[in-house]
Simulated assay, not measured.
Amino acid sequence: MTFDYSRTVTTTAPPAAVWALWSDTTTWPDWDPAVQQVRLDGPFAEGTTGTMVLTGPIEVPVSLEVVIPGSRYLDQLTMGELVIRIDHVVRPTDDGGSEVTVSTTIEGPGADDIGPMVTADAPVAMEALIVAAEAS
């Protein structure tokens, strides 16, 4: 089973402001209500692994599968047989702001059931991210 969800928002903040928040995992709990803590075992770079503590608390392994500094990262969480991939992309807009897209793909048994729960806070997280980026 596969569940897909994607959301795009625009902001007056430049891509660098969004990227600064994304690439500093200590800020994630500030703007993502589902995240309590992230501990990476290395730099914010492709191949780095670590642990994410989600609200619950639920501790899950996390890995950075793709990192293109300044524009994109894809992280992967593994929860039993479920694999959750969250792709984050920021693009500049003509007015100096950004277009921010976050896409979630969940694969495994029960993906259709857990997907809406996993993505329920996505609009709140994206709004908080945009507010923080615009304030920086």
Rank of each mutant, 00 (worst) to 15 (best):
T26P: 03
T26V: 09
D30W: 01
D30E: 15
W31Y: 14
D32W: 00
D32I: 02
A34T: 14
A34F: 09
V35Q: 09
Q36H: 11
Q37D: 14
Q37M: 06
V38M: 03
V38Q: 01
R39K: 12
R39Y: 00
R39N: 11
L40K: 06
D41T: 05
P43H: 08
F44A: 04
A45R: 05
A45L: 01
E46H: 01
E46Y: 00
G47F: 02
G47N: 06
G47P: 00
T49V: 11
G50L: 10
T51N: 06
M52F: 06
M52T: 09
M52A: 15
V53H: 02
V53S: 12
V53A: 13
L54E: 08
T55H: 11
T55P: 00
G56K: 08
G56L: 05
P57I: 08
P57D: 14
P57A: 07
P57V: 05
I58G: 04
I58P: 00
E59L: 06
E59N: 11
V60L: 15
V60W: 02
V62G: 05
S63H: 02
L64E: 05
L64I: 04
E65N: 13
V66D: 04
V66K: 02
V66G: 01
V66I: 14
V67M: 03
I68R: 14
G70C: 10
G70V: 02
S71A: 15
S71C: 08
Y73N: 10
L74K: 09
L74N: 04
D75G: 12
D75Q: 12
D75K: 04
L77F: 10
L77W: 01
T78A: 14
T78I: 13
T78W: 03
M79Y: 10
M79G: 02
M79E: 05
M79V: 15
G80A: 13
E81D: 14
E81I: 10
E81A: 13
L82Q: 11
L82S: 06
V83E: 10
V83N: 04
I84L: 13
R85D: 14
I86Q: 14
I86H: 11
H88P: 11
V89H: 05
V89T: 15
R91I: 03
R91A: 13
P92Y: 06
P92G: 13
P92D: 14
T93L: 12
D94T: 15
D94E: 15
D94Y: 09
D95Y: 02
D95W: 03
G97T: 04
G97M: 00
E99G: 08
E99F: 08
V100S: 07
V100M: 09
V100F: 13
T101L: 10
T101I: 06
S103K: 11
T104D: 05
T104F: 06
T105M: 06
T105R: 15
I106F: 03
I106L: 11
E107C: 03
E107G: 12
E107M: 09
E107V: 14
G108C: 09
P109N: 10
G110Y: 08
A111F: 08
A111M: 07
A111D: 07
D113V: 14
I114M: 05
I114W: 07
I114A: 14
G115R: 00
